[in-house]
Design a protein around this nucleic acid. Structure first.
Lengths: 340, 340
DNA sequence: TTGTAGGCGTTATCAG
DNA sequence: CTGATAACGCCTACAA
């Protein structure tokens, strides 16, 4: 492999001068610089990061730990956000996936140490509380889309499920809806409770009576193998004497079944039934007809901001655990209309 | 940072002996080994990959280049497959995303060189023909879910869209369906033509007359901003005098709209209309009611096998470009019934 | 403005 | 079985 020495030889300078050129340091004649650059091009020289790192003990690398990539593919946007930030700031990304196995997690932290990773982004694919098995390696870490349970060591950045559900509920209320159905997310998801709380609180603030609210459980059980009651729940809801004029769905995916239930009963969307989702999982929300009004989970921003934050922690060294929240933007499409 | 030297000092041996223990080399007394291992534990020593690499000029790292992660989230399973193989074989994964920008791609290859990556997995998120901007860096590469156009340099591994569509078509035919609708995938996707060909060929082999086939375009235009005709096409198809008894959908996502169109027209699935999808994008195929019969794109296997293959190439050094294909397994659910 | 000497943490070589 | 010493490619410190 061609190294700095061969370049130096070809350019007829010392290796230190080559190093200067590579790193854009001052005090190099324009003429020397050009000669070196030519040699670099001619030889196809590319600096060796490993060697560089060994001297400077900074790897300029971030590690990403994810859990279940496959069951919830949407949240890969978090990773995209991280990558974009990393790319724009000259960082490299090392990726590892636990698959939910905690021994595996410990190994990963070891591997990260081995690579002298500067910092770790601990990413979960759905919003939840976790207990990372760091093995106490002391690498600065930011948690994304999750929050530490027992240990308060790490800062975290999460979507604002509460505000998102609040905005959606208000949106429905402002469109005149009062009899509203709610089909709940799997309770093991952190968002489930926050969204429901927001729904309850907001309808209460608007003076909607409890009896106008029909709240049903849509799913439960372990992620990836959950029991699914959405279709039945929606069907039952819509067969009530005073059926709701709108249904709020735990998420977009569940909204598919609500559409199907409504259409099967001969109801038109949105004229007879308004529906809102949550997540803005576009493969679904834009495939539904009419397209689904929903609240967008800020996955990309979570990743981008998380990476930025982590980088800040590295220089500041004041890694106070704290929690940040990113808003969920309401995406207005065509699945809601004003009550007639 | 604690290095091999400190370990050696504590264990009262030379650094080379420590190295031997770490790498599981023979010719170390059991007793010495234990003393060294104790020192490693006590000091919390973790080997420095960068230093190791600098000596052995093998990074044990694979790079993954992806294109548009976000628009097609399902195919992240490819990445999971790669990670699982890498994990089981002690390789590290460096990840980068082009976002479809080719200058970015060139940079990525440079970065990979910088890290002395052993090999590259070039992954696209949908099945297509590509023209990688390698900058001719000569890193062994396997292309996954895509195929090189102009240059024949790299081996590739792809899903067998033809066989998948063939199986689905046969399945419908064996259930007695003869009047069959087909809603086509975006033609810029490589799978579009292969799937349609299989459909045409297989129906022909079964002696189905052309006039019983209704083929419509479902989508077109650039990925991420395509025009969507699925709902209208399905509606039109189902309003024909002799409407099809089954519709084959370009993919699962498009099947959502076919469901909605059918239900809106008062048709029951599958009694009045059978539907099959393609991809087995489970967030959709299992959310639809009745659940969707489809052909599973073997994303995980593509990744896993691709990584394995790449590794083989590294030792064999006979990187003959060739193309491999992985079958798409038919997943039978509840959206098809026998014609009455 | 440029060059020299030394060392980062490993592993390879070869001698003991 | 074990150890001393050199070398990998780069950067820091210092000297010229």
């Amino acid at each position: 492999m061609v190294s700095i020495v061969s370049v130096a030889k070809v350019a007829g300078v010392s290796n230190k001068t080559v190093s200067r050129v590579i790193n854009g340091e001052p005090y190099v004649t324009e003429e020397t610089r050009e000669r070196v650059e030519k040699a670099i091009r001619d030889l196809g020289y590319v600096p060796n990061m490993a060697a560089r790192q060994i001297r400077s003990s900074r790897s300029n690398t971030f590690g990403i730990i994810t859990d279940y990539v496959s069951t919830t593919p949407y949240s890969v946007d978090i990773v995209r956000g991280i990558q974009d930030w990393a790319n724009a700031n000259g960082k490299t990304i090392l990726m590892a996936n636990t698959g939910g196995v905690s021994e595996r997690e410990a190994e990963i932290w070891k591997t990260f140490q081995s690579h002298r990773i500067d910092g770790v982004l601990y990413v979960t694919m759905y919003h939840r509380i976790v207990d990372p098995e760091t093995g106490n390696v002391g690498i600065p870490t930011v948690m994304i889309n999750c929050r530490p349970q027992t240990n308060e060591l790490f800062p975290s950045i999460e979507p604002d499920d509460y505000q998102g559900a609040q905005d959606l509920t208000r949106y429905l209320l402002e469109k005149g809806h009062r009899r509203i159905g709610y089909i709940r997310l799997n309770p093991i998801l952190l968002g489930a409770e926050m969204r429901l709380d927001a729904f309850r609180q907001t309808t209460w603030e608007f003076g909607v009576s409890e009896s106008d609210l029909s709240i049903r459980l849509g799913m439960e059980g372990p992620v990836g193998a959950e029991k699914n009651y959405v279709f039945e729940a929606a069907t039952e809801l819509l067969q009530q004497k005073d059926r709701p004029t709108a249904i709020m769905s735990g998420n977009d995916e569940m909204a598919i079944q609500i559409y199907i239930a409504a259409l099967t009963l001969g109801l038109r969307i949105p004229q007879d039934l308004s529906i809102v989702g949550f997540d803005d999982f576009r493969t679904v929300s834009m495939a539904l007809k009419p397209e689904l009004t929903t609240a967008a989970l800020p996955y990309y921003d979570l990743g981008f901001e998380g990476a930025k934050w982590l980088n800040g922690l590295l220089s500041d060294a004041m890694i106070r655990p704290s929690s940040r929240v990113v808003p969920c933007k309401l995406v207005e499409r065509a699945s809601v209309c004003r009550t007639q």
